[in-house]
């Protein structure tokens, strides 16, 4: 009887460990809608600061908010990517919208202003000579409240 009890306890522990491991492995990326950004920029401030990558990278992989003109909306199935900037400036900010929040951007139009927040992934100065301008990239973007 005691052995059965031990086996049952071990089984229970194994199932619990398996469940925790499964949840850990399949944990989805954090939803940033209720998180507070570390810094708030306008798109021109962010582009200006992108020339000083070392300074901007104090916010790398951290949540920042940016507001500005929507230069382009790229839609692909149920995914949206926004490019903030203006037609007179090749430098821009690329925001990959979190798939869970695509519906929040349904009414956003090109040449309108949007306030958005996301994880700062990269800032690149155009030193390639390709004429791409400076580019800042944000991931898991959601609308700023």
């Amino acid at each position: 009887m005691k052995i059965i009890r031990i086996v049952l306890v071990l089984l229970l522990v194994a199932v619990a460990a398996g469940f925790i491991a499964y949840k850990f492995i399949n944990k989805s990326a954090p939803d940033l809608s209720d998180s507070t950004p570390e810094k708030v920029f306008t798109w021109t401030e962010l582009i200006d600061q992108s020339s000083d990558t070392a300074s901007l990278y104090q916010f790398k992989d951290k949540l920042i908010a940016v507001s500005g003109n929507v230069k382009k909306i790229a839609k692909d199935l149920n995914k949206i990517t926004l490019e903030l900037g203006d037609s007179n400036n090749v430098s821009s900010i690329i925001c990959q919208v979190d798939d869970r929040h695509v519906a929040d951007f349904a009414n956003v139009k090109e040449n309108s202003t949007v306030a958005i927040k996301g994880l700062l992934r990269s800032a690149e100065v155009d030193d390639s000579g390709l004429g791409l301008g400076n580019t800042v990239q944000l991931n898991y973007c959601v609308k700023s409240k």
Binding site: A29, D61, Q96, R121, S122, L130
Partner: peptide
């Protein structure tokens, strides 16, 4: 033709995979 792809901008369903 030129492509530039930032590796950190890849998005995954699971955080651990990323």
């Amino acid at each position: 033709v030129d492509f530039i792809i930032q590796i950190k901008s890849f998005v995954f369903k699971q955080q651990l995979l990323q």
